[in-house]
Simulated scan of single mutants.
Amino acid sequence: MTLPLKNVHAGVAPSWWPPAPGWWLVTAGVLALVAVGCWLWRRRRRRHAALLRLFDDAVAGAGSPVQQVAAMSELLRRAARRIKPEADRLDGEAWLRFLDDGLKHPAFVHGPGALLGDGGFRPDVDPAAVEALRVVARQRYLDWMRRA
């Protein structure tokens, strides 16, 4: 005896909503990664702004251009200790070469940064030279503080 076969019909395709539990986990993981990334980015920007504010406030708090040069030198020496612990003991040409180490365009031995060598000991310093020094010293300070 043969049984008659009935037509087989394909079932209804599952709906795309609601997604399967695995997709909810994937979505939660991606959102968590995005949230952590945003938090790290924001933290880095705040730290960057705080370092710049610290440098600018210390230099602005110094009265005369000579005192501003001394304040920049002190900040750079503090930052240098984070890179190399004995770097704050360097002086003269060795200190300026250390400041130039790793820069694409050296600015301390033969540039506006050379003022750090003796600018803090002069009776008078050109304010334009101090401003040029401030630009390169600020960038070097920020580089060192972010690296370590």
Rank of each mutant, 00 (worst) to 15 (best):
L40R: 15
Q139C: 09
F55I: 05
E131D: 15
F98Q: 08
G119A: 12
Q139F: 10
G120R: 07
P65G: 09
R89K: 15
Q68A: 06
G37F: 03
A60V: 05
R140E: 06
P18E: 07
G61A: 06
F55P: 03
L116V: 02
T27Y: 10
G11W: 03
P85G: 08
D100Q: 12
L96Q: 08
V66L: 02
P112I: 07
H9F: 15
W17Q: 15
P127W: 05
R89T: 10
L115R: 02
R140F: 00
D57E: 14
L33H: 07
A49S: 11
R43S: 08
G37T: 06
G120E: 05
A71T: 04
P19L: 04
L33D: 04
A35S: 09
W24S: 06
L90P: 00
K84N: 13
R122I: 01
L99I: 02
V34D: 13
S15P: 01
I83G: 02
V34I: 11
L96F: 02
D91K: 12
A129I: 00
R77S: 05
R97Q: 12
K6Q: 10
P21I: 13
W24E: 07
D57I: 01
R77G: 00
W23Q: 14
E93S: 07
A49P: 00
W17P: 01
R53C: 04
G92S: 12
R46N: 15
A50Q: 13
I83D: 06
L25I: 08
A70T: 09
R44F: 09
G37C: 03
R42S: 11
S73F: 00
P65C: 04
K104R: 10
V125K: 10
V8T: 12
G111E: 10
L51A: 05
V12D: 07
L51I: 05
A71L: 02
E86P: 10
D126H: 10
L75H: 02
A87S: 04
V12S: 14
L75P: 00
L52K: 07
G61V: 03
P65D: 05
L25K: 15
D57Q: 10
N7G: 14
K84P: 00
L103G: 07
G111D: 04
P14C: 09
G63P: 08
V26P: 04
L115P: 00
W41T: 14
S15K: 09
A137R: 07
D57A: 12
R44N: 15
A80T: 02
L76Y: 00
K104F: 09
Q139N: 12
A71V: 01
T27C: 13
V125M: 04
D57F: 03
A94H: 11
G61W: 03
R122C: 05
V59Y: 02
A35N: 09
W17N: 11
W95E: 04
K84D: 14
C38L: 15
